[in-house]
Design a protein around this nucleic acid. Structure first.
Length: 495
DNA sequence: TCTCGAT
C-alpha cells in the first residue's frame, strides 16, 4: 500500500490512485509559551565598532535590516514576535551568504545571535522550494540537519527553530540520547524538514535506516570547532560518510562557533566547498567584552571558602559554577546544599530527566546556583545569568571563553570570577592574559608574573584564520601562513 | 576530563 502524506490540496486523479493520508499543519500551540522562550531585549550599542571580516571570493552584500533578508510574512512576524528588531553583525553578513547558497564558516562572540543567523535563511529557503518540492514524497526526508555537541544545546536550537517556523508547514524534529529510542524513531518516521540532533543518536537512527538523506541540502555544525575536535571528529566523518549523504559539493555546509583554533579550521575545510566564505565578527576566540572578568589567586583548599564569599553577595542572582569533573560537580553541589544555598547540578552522569529538571530549576530561579561540568559550557542561552564562577579553570582557553559567555548575552552585562590555582593552572596563564586584555579587562600583576615564568600557551591566536578562495594555490599558501593580519582581508567593514 | 548510543 502506498501512503502519501499531503499538507495541502491534492489533485483529483491522485486521490483516486492512492490512499491519501491528510497531514494537518502543526497543531495549534499556545503562541505565548513558544515565544516566551529566551525572549530577550537586545542592546545593539555593543555591536558598534566591531570589525567584521569576510574572506573569500565575491561575498554577497550584507543586509542592514531584517526586511532586506526577504523573509516571508510568517517568518518575519515570528522574528519580530521573538523580540528581534535589528540584525546583529553575524546575522547581517551570514544571512545573505547562506541565502546565496554559499558554504560558510562563521565566528562570532558568544551571545551574538549565531543560531538565528543560520535558522532564518534555511527556513526561508525551505519555505520557498524545499518543503513544497518534497510534499508528495512518501515520508518527508530532512532537508536540513543541525548537529550540536550536547543534548540541552540541540534542544534549545530545536525550540528556536520551532519558534521561527511557527505557523509554517516546516516540521522540525529533535533527536538525542537519554530519551526513549522508540519515541524518537516514531517521531522521525513521521518525517520532517529540519532534523536537529546530537551525533550519537543521529548516527544511531541513520544507521538503522530510519532517516533518508536523499533530500538533504543543508548541514549545520553548531559549535563547529567542538564537533571537529578529537572527541567528535570520528562521528562527524561517519555522518558525512553515511550512505546517501550528499557530498560536500551537493550540499550546503555551515559552521558556527565563537572559537576556532587554526588546526581545526584547516581540518574543517574537508567538510566545506573550496570556495567557502569565512566570516569573523571581532576577534576569533575572543571573549565578549560585556562580561567583567576577574581572576582570583587561590589554592585547592581555599576554593570553597572563596565560593561561599561570592555566593554571599550574589543572593538570588543566577550563578553558574563550573568544575572540571562530574564527581566534583556532585561534591560541590552537595556542599552548597549543606550550606543552605539552593543548588542544582548538571553533568553527563545524571539522568537526562535530572539534567533537564536542573536547567528548569535554574531558569525559573528555584535554584539560583547551578553547578556544572563543561556540558553546560557552550551555547546555552539562559536569561538573567549574572555570574559565572570557574571553580576549576578548564584546560583549554576556548572552553573558558565559552563558559564565561553564558553571561553577558545579547548586550546584557555579566561577571565571571575564575579561581586560579598556580599549582594547576599555570599553563593557562598566557592565553588567559590574552583573552583578558583582548576584552579590555584588567590583568592582575601576579598573573603576569606566573605567565612570565610559564612556558606553554594553550593555543590562542587572535584573528587567526584560513583564507577561503577558489584559487587553490592561494589557499595552500594560507595554510602555511597562519595568523593573517586583518588588514590583508579581502574586505573589512566597520559597522 | 568532558561530551557523544544503548547494550
Amino acid at each position: 500500500m502506498i501512503v502519501k502524506k499531503v499538507r495541502e490540496e491534492v489533485a483529483e486523479e491522485d486521490m483516486e490512485e492512492l490512499e491519501v493520508v491528510y497531514v494537518p499543519p502543526p497543531p495549534p500551540e499556545e503562541e505565548d509559551s513558544i515565544f516566551s522562550h529566551y525572549a530577550t531585549g537586545i542592546n545593539f550599542d555593543k555591536y558598534d565598532n566591531i570589525l567584521v571580516d569576510v574572506s573569500g571570493d565575491n561575498p554577497p552584500q550584507a543586509i542592514m535590516t531584517f526586511e532586506e533578508a526577504g523573509l516571508c510574512e510568517t517568518l518575519s512576524r515570528n522574528v519580530s514576535k521573538s523580540g528581534y528588531v535589528k540584525p546583529t553583525p553575524v546575522q547581517k553578513h551570514g544571512i545573505p551568504i547562506i541565502a546565496a547558497g554559499r558554504d560558510l564558516m562563521a565566528c562570532a562572540q558568544t551571545g551574538s545571535g549565531k543560531t538565528a543567523a543560520f535558522l532564518l535563511p534555511i527556513l526561508q529557503r525551505l519555505m520557498e522550494d524545499g518543503v513544497a518540492a518534497s510534499r508528495f514524497s512518501e515520508v518527508q526526508e530532512p532537508e536540513a540537519i543541525i548537529v550540536a555537541p550536547t543534548r540541552e544545546l540541540i534542544n534549545q536550537i530545536y525550540l528556536e527553530a520551532r519558534k521561527f517556523a511557527f505557523g509554517t508547514c516546516v516540521r522540525t524534529v529533535v533527536v538525542y540520547g537519554g530519551t526513549s529510542t522508540g519515541y524518537t524513531i516514531r517521531e522521525v518516521l513521521k518525517g520532517c524538514s529540519v532534523l536537529c540532533g546530537t551525533p550519537g543518536r543521529l548516527l544511531d537512527i541513520i544507521g538503522r535506516g530510519k532517516v533518508g538523506l536523499s533530500k538533504l541540502r543543508y548541514l549545520v555544525l553548531d559549535e563547529a570547532d567542538r564537533m571537529l575536535d578529537m572527541g567528535f571528529e570520528p562521528d562527524m566523518r561517519k555522518l558525512v560518510g553515511s550512505p546517501g549523504m550528499p557530498s560536500k559539493e551537493e550540499r550546503q555546509t555551515l559552521m558556527f562557533s565563537a572559537t576556532y583554533p587554526e588546526d581545526i579550521q584547516r581540518m574543517a575545510a574537508d567538510f566545506l566547498k573550496i570556495d567557502y566564505l569565512f566570516l569573523a565578527v571581532g576577534q576569533v576566540g575572543g571573549a565578549c567584552s560585556d562580561v567583567e572578568q576577574q581572576v582570583l589567586q587561590v589554592t585547592q583548599y581555599s576554593k570553597r571558602e572563596a565560593l561561599m564569599d561570592i555566593l554571599k553577595t550574589t543572593g538570588t542572582e543566577r550563578t553558574m559554577v563550573f568544575v572540571e569533573t562530574k564527581r566534583k560537580a556532585d561534591f560541590i553541589a552537595t556542599f552548597l546544599c549543606q550550606e543552605n544555598v539552593p543548588t542544582t547540578s548538571i553533568h553527563g552522569d545524571r539522568e537526562q530527566r535530572e539534567r533537564e529538571q536542573a536547567l528548569t530549576d535554574f531558569r525559573t530561579g528555584k535554584c539560583p546556583v547551578l553547578v556544572a561540568t563543561s556540558v553546560a559550557a557552550r551555547g546555552l542561552d539562559i536569561e538573567h545569568v549574572q555570574h559565572v564562577v570557574n571553580f576549576d579553570l578548564p584546560s583549554g582557553i576556548d572552553e573558558y571563553v565559552h563558559r564565561i559567555g553564558r553571561t553577558g548575552r545579547c548586550g546584557n552585562t555579566g561577571r565571571a570570577v575564575s579561581f586560579f590555582d598556580p599549582e594547576a593552572d599555570s599553563p593557562l596563564a598566557r592565553s588567559l592574559i590574552k583573552v583578558l586584555s583582548g576584552a579590555q579587562q584588567e590583568v592582575p600583576s601576579w598573573l603576569e608574573e606566573i605567565a612570565g615564568g610559564a612556558h606553554g600557551t594553550t593555543g590562542f591566536n587572535p584573528r587567526g584564520r584560513v583564507f577561503a578562495s577558489t584559487d587553490t594555490r592561494r589557499r595552500e599558501e594560507a595554510r602555511h601562513q597562519v595568523s593573517v593580519p586583518s588588514s590583508a582581508a579581502d574586505e573589512d567593514v566597520w559597522e
